[in-house]
């Protein structure tokens, strides 16, 4: 279980009052399921990932508690696939980077076996990041995170920039990982695809969790959602042909 208890993140600023970007956030993600986080841009979604992975900038003040399987998060215990494609090192091949992340966790990983699970050809291992398309780079980024073999995976916008088929495939893969026993936290704007694989989804608004609902509530006109913001966010997806 990944538990986040009243997480508050503030950024200290020069010559300005500090900026609160996450306030009193509670989150619980069980192993063996996909837990979703969604919300408008700038709601603080990626900061949750950074807070759990310990990659917040130095001027961030964090309070609250984060427990992974009952203990504070240890480095290397959680894998994070960041949102930006610049997370790949431009001066190393994809295969070399996968090996690098595996080595950080004291394991070995065969890129030629890992890449096809993400829908990439084994030959992508020899490619340099600048030779990849956006979608390929996103999957290569996910591959580096998976190479650590950590039991927890946080995927930040794993489907951004992917075509529909590739996006389905990535979400399905995340679902498979969860049913294999991984704990998977997915941050995404892609609510319909997220709802298809997730157990629970937390809706974030300006740094606060406004509603946590089972994925089944994200259907139809969103009438099963309690908060108006969550309902509007769902309706904005324009997936309901009747409305």
């Amino acid at each position: 279980m990944l538990v986040v208890k009243s997480l508050t993140v503030r950024f200290r600023r020069h010559g300005a009052p500090s900026l609160t970007v996450l306030e009193g956030l509670d989150l619980a993600a069980p192993r063996g399921a996909v837990t979703g986080i969604c919300g408008a841009s700038g709601a603080g979604k990626s900061l949750i990932a950074a807070a759990i992975a310990g990659t917040l900038p130095r001027n961030a003040d964090v309070s609250g508690r984060i427990l992974v399987d009952g203990a504070p998060p240890s480095r290397g215990g959680i894998a994070l696939a960041p949102q930006g494609l610049d997370a790949l090192d431009p001066l190393a091949t994809v295969g070399a980077q996968i090996a690098r992340f595996a080595r950080l966790a004291d394991r070995t990983e065969d890129p030629a076996a890992l890449l096809p699970r993400l829908g990439l050809a084994p030959t992508v291992a020899q490619a340099w990041p600048h030779e990849l398309s956006g979608g390929m780079a996103r999957r290569a980024c996910l591959a580096t995170a998976l190479a650590t073999g950590a039991g927890w995976l946080i995927a930040d916008e794993p489907t951004a920039g992917l075509d529909a088929a590739a996006a389905e495939r990535i979400m399905a893969l995340l679902g498979t990982l969860a049913s294999d026993g991984y704990g998977v936290l997915v941050i995404s704007h892609d609510l319909p695809r997220l709802a298809a694989v997730a157990g629970e989804i937390t809706v974030l608004q300006e740094g606060c969790a406004v509603e946590t609902a089972p994925a089944s509530a994200f259907r139809g006109n969103g009438e099963a959602l309690r908060k108006p913001f969550a309902r509007r966010l769902w309706q904005a997806q324009n997936v309901c042909p009747a409305c």
Binding site: T55, A92, R100, A150
Partner: peptide, 21 residues
Amino acid sequence: SPAATHLAAHGARPLWLAFGP
């Protein structure tokens, strides 16, 4: 760079980052 942050998030130490990748 984000690439180094990505490595650091998975346990890479600062000196290893500097003298490795």
